[in-house]
Design a protein around this nucleic acid. Structure first.
Lengths: 300, 300
DNA sequence: CATGGTCTTTGACCTTAGTCAAAGGATCGC
DNA sequence: GCGATCCTTTGACTAAGGTCAAAGACCATG
């Protein structure tokens, strides 16, 4: 981890202060003008995750980090105001689900309208060119902050998170490959555990958002497979982070060469491998879904 | 005012949500761990503006937007904790000034250390290149948000804010011009009021941060003078905004030509005038501090 | 069907944040 | 020197935000 310059820390804090002071305060103010801030936030959160069966109280609690009693009272208040309806969960009557009523939906729409006009009001102070630059810079900041918060962790090949990622990966390939994708092609849990290999999962705020597998392919040679990033986490540069982790792990095991293959449909992957120092080689193994083969020599 | 696209509004809100959720919450949490958030903020604000005579309570009140009674009680609490000392203002005993004690300084340093390590922790999740890009994008966002919040207003030439700006302007020129600057060269209040001319002041959060004067120079011709931006508000593109306001005002009066002169020492001003469509002309009047003369024909 | 564990509700309580108005001391303008 | 005004302090109050623990309803398990 390279050391962070004090100048950059100061930049960061300057930005943070300015932003929370200027925009954060404004936002809280408009949000809280009809009802207490906590209630407004809760309503918002309910709207955000209002599925077919409503939202679980339990989920709201963990999401907003609220005390059970406090939450219970706030939802009761919202129910009295006609914004939401509480009901017992159909399969487990210890649980409560909460969902917006039509009146609640109107209220949330109104909240959103206000937030929109707050944002529009700020943006309106700029000409078109600067406005576009502002939006772009905001997108950059958000992208990089997200990336900074994602950690790539070594997990056991049997871990539920690992298998969940591979499932999502397989679903996606099944759609993207013209010939579909057969899940038996996935690495087994044992192939990426212990001596045989390794599995990495990328986490963003506790949620798995990417993965990558490494397995022994020959003496001193590893094979990289199933490098995948959740659609919500793409274009952050996360695949490279996963690849880095896999390469570091390979080196740790004295596997000085890593190989991988890729399907013609995954053009963006090929570009990334090339950019990361992989060079195309002849087929090193038979594989149904492989059209291109790459190799990289590790270590300095 | 050009209309703001809904896509941009959505970008803005996405950014806002992400930032306040991820960074804002963290910050409040660490800030408030030893004492109530309000108190921590107050202490911070006192430290920030701790001059040779301390800070005026009145100033803190307006800066933090607090109720007089509330502030009075909070400072008392901080005094009891030994963080600050209250004293009566030497020249006006209605006023109170407050200043940090050594113990208070230690406390603030500790707070700062924690905020720094929070920032460093976030930045440490990125490699050098991305970290630099993050800081740059943050600086851009901050610059543009500031600019968006600044308004340029038409004020009377006698207004205290107008004269305050001209004073600051004169002080600066006195330093920058090798021959010094004589304040009698400034436009008089009447020259930039009513029919004779106009004066604009740029405000950032209520504080004047720039100005510009327009006065009748000949039939159908205006002269622009004293375009100035406070050092804290430079490099935002504010001078152009002031210039725009002056030109719009000139056109409103059917003055289709505006002229101005500038001193050789103000090289950045000359570049700006050229970039804004001004062309150099021969001297149109005698003027002690003028080395270059510019003109622009207004209207479409 | 008893037992331990999971959720939610309720009651009791506390701190923080903030408002309002009255009062008191000081200054300013006339 | 008087009244208006300014700034701070104090008292009285309120709402919001949050914590803790006990109780109640329910589920899963042996």
């Amino acid at each position: 981890m390279e050391s962070v310059s004090t100048e950059q820390v100061a930049d960061f804090r300057r930005f943070h202060r300015y932003f929370t002071r200027r925009i954060g305060a404004l936002n809280d103010h408009y949000l809280g003008q009809d009802r207490p801030l906590g209630e407004a936030r809760l309503l918002f959160e309910i709207a955000e995750h209002d599925g077919p069966d409503g939202v679980l109280l339990r989920e709201l609690r963990s999401r907003l980090g609220l005390d059970a009693g406090y939450l219970s009272r706030m939802t009761k208040t919202l129910e009295r105001q006609g914004m939401v309806r509480l009901s017992v969960h159909p399969h487990d009557s210890r649980l409560r689900t909460v969902r917006l009523t039509p009146a609640g939906r109107v209220e949330v729409t109104e909240q959103n309208r206000r937030a929109d006009s707050l944002a529009a009001g700020v943006l309106a102070g700029l000409d078109t060119g600067r406005r576009a630059r502002l939006c772009e810079a905001m997108a950059t900041v958000r992208r990089l902050l997200r990336l900074a918060a994602i950690t790539v962790e070594h997990v056991d090949g049997h871990a539920p998170d690992a298998r969940a990622c591979l499932d999502a990966y397989a679903d996606e390939l099944d759609v993207r490959f013209p010939e579909g994708f057969d899940r038996t092609d996935l690495v087994g849990p044992d192939e990426v555990s212990g001596e045989a290999g390794a599995f990495f999962v990328a986490y963003e705020e506790g949620r798995p958002v990417g993965c990558g597998a490494l397995r022994r392919q020959a003496a001193g040679t590893g094979e990289i497979r199933h490098v995948w990033v959740h659609p919500d986490a793409r274009r952050l540069g996360l695949a490279r982070r996963v690849l880095d982790a896999l390469e570091v792990e390979a080196l740790r095991r004295d596997w000085t060469v890593v190989r991988l293959d890729t399907h013609a449909a995954l053009t963006e992957a090929q570009a990334m491998y090339r950019a990361c120092g992989y060079t195309e080689i002849p087929a090193y193994a038979e594989h149904v879904y492989a059209d291109h083969w790459f190799e990289k020599r590790l270590g300095r």
